[in-house]
């Protein structure tokens, strides 16, 4: 999966709830349709980001794993 992101958020080394809180804050500054890439290494994000997106009405586009690094993509609605 090749994803083009409008903005990248580095959350490597951060644990719950920080990646979600930072995602929420970043999305507030973004325009509808833009894609946010979040890089994290707390595996909880694999479940948390789709959950966050479904409850906030944003679109979870998918994730990529490379070793411990997880890249997740969400589109602002």
């Amino acid at each position: 999966m090749v994803m083009k992101a409008d903005r990248t958020l580095d959350c490597v080394g951060l644990y719950c709830p920080m990646p979600i809180v930072k995602t929420s804050q970043a999305m507030m500054e973004m325009q509808p349709g833009e894609v946010l890439e979040v890089i994290a290494d707390d595996r909880g994000i694999k479940s948390d980001m789709p959950a966050w997106a479904s409850k906030t009405g944003n679109e979870f586009l998918g994730l990529k794993e490379d070793g411990d690094e997880i890249r997740v993509y969400v589109r602002k609605k």
Partner: peptide
Amino acid sequence: FNIANTAAAMGL
């Protein structure tokens, strides 16, 4: 506070 902040970040 972990739960509160997460829920707030989910727009609740």
